[in-house]
Design a protein around this nucleic acid. Sequence first.
DNA 1: AAATTTATGTTCGATAACGCACAGAGCCGG
DNA 2: CCGGCTCTGTGCGTTATCGAACATAAATTT
Lengths: 241, 241
Amino acid sequence: MTPTHDPRQNHLLAALPEECYSRVHPELELVALPLGWVLYESGNPMKHVYFPASGIVSLLYLTDNGSSSEIAITGNEGLVGISLFMGGESTTNRAVVQCSCHAYRMNRRVLKQEFALGGGFQYLALRYTQALITQMAQTSVCNRHHTLDQQLCRWLLLSLDRLEGTDLMMTQELIANMLGVRREGVTEAAGKLQQAGLINYSRGRISVTDRPGLEKRVCECYAVVKGEYDRLLSAKISVPA
Amino acid sequence: MTPTHDPRQNHLLAALPEECYSRVHPELELVALPLGWVLYESGNPMKHVYFPASGIVSLLYLTDNGSSSEIAITGNEGLVGISLFMGGESTTNRAVVQCSCHAYRMNRRVLKQEFALGGGFQYLALRYTQALITQMAQTSVCNRHHTLDQQLCRWLLLSLDRLEGTDLMMTQELIANMLGVRREGVTEAAGKLQQAGLINYSRGRISVTDRPGLEKRVCECYAVVKGEYDRLLSAKISVPA
DNA sequence: AAATTTATGTTCGATAACGCACAGAGCCGG
DNA sequence: CCGGCTCTGTGCGTTATCGAACATAAATTT
C-alpha cells in the first residue's frame, strides 16, 4: 500500500484555523526529502518554508575547520525556514534531512502574504519559533555543562519524539556530527546505554527498548525543551482566526 | 552635568519610522537598571519589554545544580523580552543587568497593540529576534568547539560592542558565571590576554588596550554574530511604515 | 593602622573528551 | 566464496577543564 500524505500530519498546519488552512492549502507542494538533502545552505536566501509531515531535519552549523554541530532539530511539530518570516531571508546554518521524509512546502511570496495577515498563521509560526529558541538555548547549556552520555540521551529522546515507533536509522558517525563530538565518544556512550539495557543498535539502526530508562538518565535539558514545546504548541491552545 | 536620556539611544527605537515612533514614544517609561537587577525570571510572565539605552543585559540559564551560563547578551542594539511578542509570555531563562544602565520600557498591552499593526515595529522586532537567534546558536557552537581563551575573547568583544569606551566593570567571577566555567579558568585565560598586551585588568575593571589583537585571537563565532547583527539591523535598512 | 572582605593568582590530582591507530565485524557485489 | 566497504570497538598518550585548597593582594570597614 502506498502511504497517503496529508498536510495535517504537520502539527502546525493541523492547528491552523479552518479559514486559514483553506487559504493556505492549495499553495502547499508535497516534496520528498531524501536522507542528506540540504533544504537550505548557510547564507543562501531561501525560496520556501518546509512543513515536515514526518522525519527529522537538523539545523547544523559548520565550523571553519570542518567540524559541525547541531543547533536544533525539527520534525512534524514545526517548520524549517523561520528566517523567511523573521525577515532575514537566510541564516548562518544549514538544514539537512536526517531521516528521510515528506514535507509540504510553501513559497516565499505566499508565506509572507499569509504571515502579514497577522492571524492564526503568524500566531503559530511565532510560537513555534519561540519553542525553537528554547531548544537552541538549551543545546548551548547542555554543550557547556553536561556529559556526552547525557547529551546522547537528550538527542535520542528529542529525535524519538519526532518519529513513529522506537527505531532510529542513524550511524554513530552521524550522531557524532550532530553532537559535535568524536565518533568514538558516541560508540562509548552508546555502549553504556546498551549495557544498561536501554537501547539496541547495529550498523546504523538504534532501537530504544527502555524509554523511561533514558528519561531517568537524561539531563534536565530534555524536560525543559519538551516542556516549552508542549506549553507553546499544545493542541489545546486557542488560535486566533 | 546630569546625563540626558533619549529613547533613541536605543537603536531599535531610533530606527522606527517617524509615524510609528510618535505613536510609541508617549508610552515609553524611563527606568534605571542597577547592576544585578533581574528584568524577568525564568517561567514568570513578563509585564514589559525593555529597550536599553546603554549598558548590558544578559540572558542566563540556571541549571538544577546551581551553575549558570549565558544564552545571549543584549544592549542598546536590541530589546529584552521577545517572548511578549513571540507569544509565549515567559521564557526558561532569566534576564540580568550586567552593566548598570537606563532603559525605556513599554507595557505588554501597548507592545502587543503596536506589534499587531504589522508595521515598522514588527519588522524591527522580528529582525532583531533573528539576530538574537544567531547569537544563541553561535554560543552553542562556541561552547562545543572552542577553547576558553577564545570564548573569553568573544565575550569581551560582544560586550565591548555594547558599551562606550574600552572599559568593562566586571569581576572574573562574574565573567566565569556568564561563560559557565570556573573562576580560575577565567583568571588563567585573562592572564594570557594580559601578558599578550591585549587587556589590562584590576579588581573588577577590564580595559581593552588592543582591540584588533583580540579580534585576531577570537574564534570565528564573533564575526558570524557581528555579521548577522550588521546585516539584519543596519541603519540602512528601509523600514516599512 | 588594623581587621575584614573581596578579588585574583597558583598548585595539584582527577576526569572527560580528544586525536590517532588499528582491529574486528557485518554487509554487499562480483 | 572472496575482496572490499562500512560500521563499530578498543587502546593508547595528550589536552583542556575541573574541583578544591590555599596564598597573595587590593579595597573597605572599624
